[in-house]
Amino acid sequence: MEGVADIRANGMWVIATSFLVAMVLSVVTLPVSMPQEVGYLRPEWVVLTLIYWVIALPHRVGIVVAWFIGLIMDVLLGDLLGQHGLAYIVVAYVSQNLYQRLRMFAVWQQSGIVFAIVGVSQLINFWIESIAGFVDWSLWYLLPSVVSALLWPWVFLILRYLRRVFGVT
């Protein structure tokens, strides 16, 4: 007999590990020989992971999880506390509203939506940073969402494979 708690707790470590890997990837040090502009090509790993889990398991990964992950990212990146939290709850909210449609889409169509969602989260981050007086606008800010959209099919396939292998429901 399986209790409700058992079902809810299954494969939690898979989700946690995937977010941890995404966080590592988003701060991994680039070789010093590379020009710093290469940093703009870095996809938003955490947003991609978040979108995947919200689409796959909307009853488990939602706005609250997104907010706490955002808080960790703020500490990791030394940003204002709550900045990524705000961006990620919008990501989670939009994905949660679209998940039934997104599941029907082909992967490349999902990429288009992912482009928009990552773009919105970038925009929120940019607004907050510019209000706090840290940055000037440059078109470079759009590049991560393009790269993220291009990478989405692979992230999607890998995470779906992991989810099926470990039976995370």
């Binding site: 907010w67 955002g70 204002l80 506390l81 709550g82 900045q83 939290g85 705000l86 709850i89 706090a132």
Partner: peptide, 24 residues
């Protein structure tokens, strides 16, 4: 959602304007 958004905004303002969150 709205609640968390407000919490975020409050946290950011406090963090930006004062140093009280430095220990946390």
């Amino acid at each position: 959602m709205l609640g968390l958004a407000i919490v975020s905004l409050a946290l950011m303002s406090v963090d930006h304007l004062t140093g009280s969150l430095d220990n946390f």
